[in-house]
């Protein structure tokens, strides 16, 4: 690992030196003493942040990529061997055996497909409602944003209590069910519905943040456009359909990509509320489990690499689709 760190630093220094040398040569050629001095200062100023980026961003990415092709076992950190694509072949075997990777992919995709419209739809709806000046708007903004500032672990524990099926400590939801005469439900223990609850909880927790971004987007729309539409006789629906939503598109694209990437990293909610089960494991949960509990860092890195390619491909496809709509 130390060797890898040194290699990364070496590459960084080489890049900086080459860039600096080019600048110096260029400055000397033009007899520009001011540029020479400012270039040196610029590189010196850049150096600390570049070092930090290399330590905390570049190095983990490079190591993650590299480990995917090794047999790195957590208990044997000094015995890491290159094994080619064996991890990927093992993952294929796991997938064919309907093992963990199969369930993780299925659950993650299911979550992404369900949470995206629900969370973005809720956020947009709330933003459109709160965009009009009304009494008590601030209260609602705070109320809708409050879950965002709460830790996901806290939110998960809170919902765990609400959905508790335990007879001695019946959760709020089952208490309401009992009051209206419904039979009690096992909620998160039921593999058929557990993911839907995770989707609902995640949308509830995250929608407040997207709502604020949508609100900012709405505030940026010029009032002149609304006035012009009104003069032309447009009603509220037409204004929303032809002015608000098209003008919100850049915001919408940003929200969609960030929510999409966030959804692909689902971990805390199933981990805290359910545990590692076929119906609750996600790709991030599997990476954690393989890397830390089963100690196969190489194998976990291979999954991470596949996830990166998977999410990256979907993002690119989304971007293309959005461009085609334009």
């Amino acid at each position: 690992m130390t060797t890898l760190t040194l290699i990364i630093y070496g590459i960084l220094i080489v890049i900086l030196t080459i860039a600096g040398t080019f600048d110096v040569i260029k400055a000397k050629k033009h007899h520009d003493r001011y540029k020479l001095k400012s270039s040196i200062y610029a590189y010196l100023i850049l150096l600390p942040i570049l070092m930090l980026i290399s330590i905390f961003v570049l190095q983990p990415i490079v190591m993650g990529l590299a480990f995917g092709f090794t047999d790195y076992y957590l208990l044997e950190p000094n015995n890491i061997r290159f094994i080619g694509v064996r991890n990927f072949m093992d993952l294929m075997d796991q997938y064919q055996a309907r093992g963990d990777i199969y369930h993780a992919f299925r659950n993650t995709i299911q979550f992404m497909v369900l949470v995206l419209p629900l969370q973005i739809g809720s956020a947009l709806g709330l933003a459109l409602i709160l965009n009009h000046a009304r009494k008590g708007n601030s209260y609602f903004k705070v109320a809708f944003f409050a879950p965002v500032v709460m830790s996901l672990t806290v939110v998960s524990i809170l919902w765990l209590q609400i959905l508790s099926p335990n007879q001695t400590q019946l959760g709020l939801m089952n208490t309401i069910f009992a009051l209206v005469g419904f039979p009690p439900s096992t909620f998160l223990l039921d593999g058929g519905v557990a993911m839907y609850w995770i989707v609902i909880i995640s949308a509830w927790q995250g929608a407040g943040f997207q709502m604020l971004i949508f609100l900012a987007g709405l505030k940026n729309i010029s009032l002149d456009m609304y006035d012009a539409a009104k003069i032309d006789g447009a009603d509220d629906f037409e204004i929303t359909r032809f002015i608000t939503l098209p003008q919100l598109k850049p915001t919408f694209v940003f929200v969609m990509f960030t929510t999409f990437i966030g959804a692909s990293k689902l971990l805390i909610q199933p981990m805290v509320m359910i545990g590692f089960k076929n119906y609750s494991m996600t790709l991030s949960y599997l990476i954690y489990r393989e890397g830390y509990q089963f100690r196969f860092v190489g194998y976990a890195s291979a999954i991470a690499l596949i996830v990166t390619i998977f999410v990256g491909t979907l993002v690119i496809l989304q971007r293309r689709a959005m461009k085609e709509v334009d």
Partner: peptide
């Protein structure tokens, strides 16, 4: 059967 197959792939590592 399903868990045995899945576990076997893990043990093979």
């Amino acid at each position: 059967n399903q868990y045995a197959a899945s576990l076997q792939t893990k043990l093979n590592r």
